[in-house]
Design a protein around this nucleic acid. Structure first.
Lengths: 214, 214, 214, 214
DNA sequence: CAATAATCGAGACGGTACGTCGCGTCTTGGT
DNA sequence: ACCAAGACGCGACGTACCGTCTCGATTATTG
């Protein structure tokens, strides 16, 4: 797990070194401000004040609001885990609920979607989001898939390229569904929903409709 | 199709009536500005200038940037249709590709995600988005489902509440997956992807993995 | 006496006209801030606050601190007059004392010298100072000279160019001496000093030394 | 001639002694920066860089911009001399031209007036200016006066207080006129002007007008 | 056919936040 | 004890938009 601070800090260079405490304080203050104010009313001056830090210190480390919020939000997703619940269905439900729980937090909600929106016009930002958030969590899909294959629930894949495409597809479906349910539709992704979603994901529309409807 | 302009205008009242041309010009200017500048650098003063209209005229019709962009973007999604392609799978692929085509346009990308991000802290805005964009497109799911049931590809549903839940779930999965693929993962949702996605959606992970892998 | 506000204001132009009250309030606030804070600690934000005006309003009218202070200080010198005291010597003493009284006020002191210092690297500013302050007060020298010639205390001049050079010289000597005494030497230009100065100016060093010393 | 560096440096104290070269480099860099940038855009960080010195080193020796510039400018005036030209008038003309030549240099212009402006609100600074610049040059008036008395051009003075007052008056008149001519009126104090000024100073307005006009 | 009233353009207004710059202090490691 | 380097808290800068307001000039309906 690499550091996410933007500019590398060789230890041997001259001058006073950057305060490590400031970084943590700023990211925490950013999350607090996101909770209270949301993305659009969050100001870097306010974040600096909350962190007990000068505005210039903040600008020395991050290029702007977007980059700062990406880093602040990314830390939230690092706590996702994939405990072994015994079956693929249970594993999926578990990670869906964990993901939903994070997305229910206001700092994740407004922060995440806002930077994604900004990233549509800023390739460097999109790259940063991918590195710091998206790809970092694909490990969950990989792990779950391997575990299911070990259990015999999924067939072994031989084609590496095909595997990668499938991983990406599953990730888009799972993450996209939870995000859309939570943020666009504006309803909570609770256990019932997670169960229904898992059924569709595993058995498909036709298969899921049968047992659920009958 | 109801009007989306926020403040009603009785026709019989005295005084000079509002210019109908101004509304259209403003929405078009908003989309043009979204293409050129993106959400965050779009300014209402600039939109007014592009539309050849005074700022006052704009504020008389919309309360702010969010409301204006919701209306400007909503019009984009009204062009979605569900031509009968003969099978449920083909219908799904068709609508997925149409949706992806709209999301590929820059004015839709940055505009849509930005207002969704804002709506996480503004219930009125969320309501407006749901009314103007989301629920308006659920018709596609309903229509496709009815068509598939007529063809015998899906069983008839009797429970109305269960049906509504399933409609919502499918909508979140389809829309969420396309949005996530396009905006978060940042890759195009092309025909190959739409085909793979449709297979998973209809047959589930286990079922889809078989044919695709073997 | 022409207006000193920088940008002309045709009455027939469209849009809301500029507030005339704001100009006066800003200039008064500038002088008040000069008294309390002096030139170097005077900030335009503070002036705007004192005047009950937004910073942008101030910047719409003046290009910067220099221009603003020139106008604020210039008004101070417009109150100079040349009452007829019966003799050239008495007239000179009178205007010297009036000039000294203005220079004793803190808003004139720090403001005037600071803009003069800045004007050494800003030709437009030097021009503005000359127009608004220096040349405007040369009328005093002209008037006093004419009066003295009418009394027969000074010979009639025929050469116009020579006259202009003499006017400039006298002005530099009088104004320069008072300014140097007040600001550089830091001592008050009181009646005794004005009397001694007038004697030197009228009779020269040799002539003045005789009566004063003997 | 005493040292002008503000904080005394005992030679026998322990530790590494201060670099003597640094002082000279800083003052030279200050003058160079005054020439290029003028007072208001001169920054201590830039001076330090030009001098090849850390900001810390600069602050160890001077309290701020004002003090530094006073010292940098004061050195310019030390080169003034009073060569014997044979008559009081010629001596005055000579020193006026020398003074004008110094004031024509941009580092003197903007530096001198700026610190004088600052000194209107800073007694310690005024004191420093008086000690380092003003009083140091009064020697010229004293010397010239003594020389003129030796020649019989001026009467011997007996009253010491009266003498002091006259010295101060002459200094204010001479220095003030040159400064006003150069900086406020913005015209060069050339030989013609020096000649006219000397005539007025020696013979007074009435006396000077006669020969020049007739 | 006036009178009335809401619209239109233009642009000034009081605010708030921006991102930068310079200040003067401090904390490093090196001489 | 000094030095170069550079991060730090602080405060002002001048700009950009915000959303509101005040203008004079148009249009409509209504008396």
């Amino acid at each position: 797990m690499q550091s996410r601070t933007p500019f590398s800090c060789r230890s041997g260079r001259p001058g006073r070194p950057r305060s490590a405490a400031a970084d943590a304080a700023i990211l925490a203050a950013t999350r607090a401000a996101l909770v209270e104010l949301g993305w659009s009313k969050l100001t870097l001056g306010d974040v600096a004040t909350r962190a007990g830090v000068a505005k210039t210190t903040l600008y020395r480390r991050w290029a702007g609001k977007n980059e700062l919020v990406v880093d602040a939000v990314a830390e939230l997703f690092d706590e996702l885990e994939l405990p072994d619940r015994g079956s693929l269905a249970a594993d999926i439900e578990g990670v869906v609920l964990q993901f939903a729980a994070i997305l229910a937090r206001p700092e994740a909600k407004s922060g995440l979607m806002a930077v994604v929106a900004e990233s549509t016009r800023d390739d460097a930002l999109r790259e940063r989001i991918r590195d710091s958030i998206v790809d970092r969590q694909k490990r969950l899909v990989l792990e779950g898939r391997a575990r299911a294959q070990a259990r015999g629930e999924l067939p072994q894949e031989s084609d590496a390229a095909e595997t990668a495409r499938t991983i990406d597809l599953i990730f888009d479906v799972v993450a996209g569904a939870v995000v859309h349910r939570t943020l666009v539709s504006g309803r909570s992704a609770d256990e019932d929903w997670a169960s229904g979603f898992t059924q569709v994901l595993l058995q498909g529309l036709a298969g899921a409709a049968g047992p659920a409807g009958g």
